[in-house]
Simulated scan of single mutants.
Amino acid sequence: TYVAHSDSSVSATMFKSIVQGFQSVEPLKIGELWALPSLLRFVLIENLRRLAVRVNRTRQMRQIANDVADKVLATDDSADRQSILSNFSAHAQDTTFATQLLYRLRDGSQNAGKALEWLEGELEKTGSDAEEIIISEHHTLSSGNVTTGNIIRGLRLINDVDWTVWFEGVSRIDTVLRERTDFAALDFFSRDQYRTAIEELARRSNLSEYRVAEKAIELAGHAASDGDGDVVLTGSAHTDVGFFLVGPRRLELEKAIGYRPTISQTVKRAFRKTGWLGIVVPVFALTALLLVLSGNALANLGLSVPSIVLMLALFAVPASEGALAFFNTVVS
Rank of each mutant, 00 (worst) to 15 (best):
I152H: 11
A69P: 02
R59E: 03
L116T: 05
D182I: 11
F15A: 04
L28H: 03
A237Q: 13
V165P: 03
K29Y: 08
G235C: 12
A323P: 00
R195H: 11
A115G: 07
T164E: 12
A216N: 07
A12C: 00
T1L: 14
V317Q: 08
F315V: 10
V283C: 05
E168C: 01
S9T: 10
L102K: 02
G21M: 06
S236R: 14
A213H: 07
Q100K: 01
A92C: 11
T147P: 06
V3G: 05
S190C: 13
A98Y: 03
L36G: 03
V283N: 02
G247T: 05
L36R: 03
W163H: 04
L251W: 10
T239S: 15
T164F: 08
L303I: 09
Y210F: 15
R59V: 05
S304I: 07
I30M: 00
S294K: 07
V231R: 03
S83Y: 01
S38E: 12
D77I: 07
E254N: 08
V281T: 07
V283R: 06
L102P: 02
V241K: 10
K125R: 12
E168P: 02
E26L: 04
T95R: 01
L105D: 05
F243N: 13
G235F: 13
S294Q: 08
M61P: 00
L101K: 02
E137V: 05
W34I: 11
S11E: 06
S6E: 08
H5T: 10
T181G: 04
Q63R: 15
A130T: 08
S320Y: 04
T96V: 09
S171C: 08
E131H: 11
L39R: 00
L301W: 02
I217T: 10
S109H: 07
G154N: 03
M311T: 04
L157I: 01
S109P: 00
L298M: 03
Q60C: 11
A115S: 07
V68T: 06
A270E: 15
A115Y: 03
T266I: 12
V53L: 13
S142R: 03
R106H: 10
D226E: 15
E46S: 12
T1G: 15
E131R: 12
D67Y: 15
Y194Q: 09
D76V: 11
D7Y: 08
S8R: 05
